[in-house]
Amino acid sequence: MASTSLDRKPRLLQVLDVLSALLMLGAIYMVFFYAPMERVMGQVQRLFYFHVASAWVSMAVLIVAAILGIVYLIRPQHKWDIWAVACIELGLVYAFICVTTGSIWARPAWNTWWTWDPRVVTFTILILVYLAYMLLRQGIEDPQRRARFGAIYAILAAVTVPLTFFSIRIWRTLHPVVIGSGDPSAQGTFDMTRPMLHTLLFSLLAFSIFGFTLLWHRVRLGWLADKVEQLRMKALGR
């Protein structure tokens, strides 16, 4: 990427900024005014739209980070690493939103802030795994080695996190399966009406676009930080 293109914000990104702001406002509007109140759960059910959307985006970007890891190991170019870090940071933030909204929802639904449900535990473990990723990166000075270890760790994480889910699911699950076949024993299940489905799909779209916009900003930040470092080395006469 040419350095001149970095200095100014790309046109498309400016468009995306505005678009994601509008979409997020639209999603909030739909959640509160378009979607009907759920009969059993009441207002707190409205969390569900953002809960599912953040879960989806975080899973998606973390899988992308693992794919970028494979790409980096085959073709070690710095840009893949910058994208991978951006993906993982974004995935962490969204995973955190997901667990927090889930916990708030669980209080009235399951009468507890916290359960040892596979999905809940998996997301918490996922947060711990990727926090460890950040610690690992912090501990390595050589940028190439940092990128290489980051790539390997992201791949390992993408393998172990699903296995964590399956290993815990052998215990009984409490979490409702809203889409697809429902487990009758799950508590807090509800039937989705059409407006609810519209709201959910719109939230998914809004969160994805917003997520991509954030990702792009983070990548630009990564490039700029890099450039600063290069200029610093030049100034120091290296």
Binding site: V129, A132, L135, Y153, L156, A157, T160, F166, S167
Partner: peptide, 10 residues
């Protein structure tokens, strides 16, 4: 331990 334990959880 920070790297290993969450990865070894399954």
């Amino acid at each position: 331990p920070v790297l290993l334990l969450p990865m070894a959880l399954p």
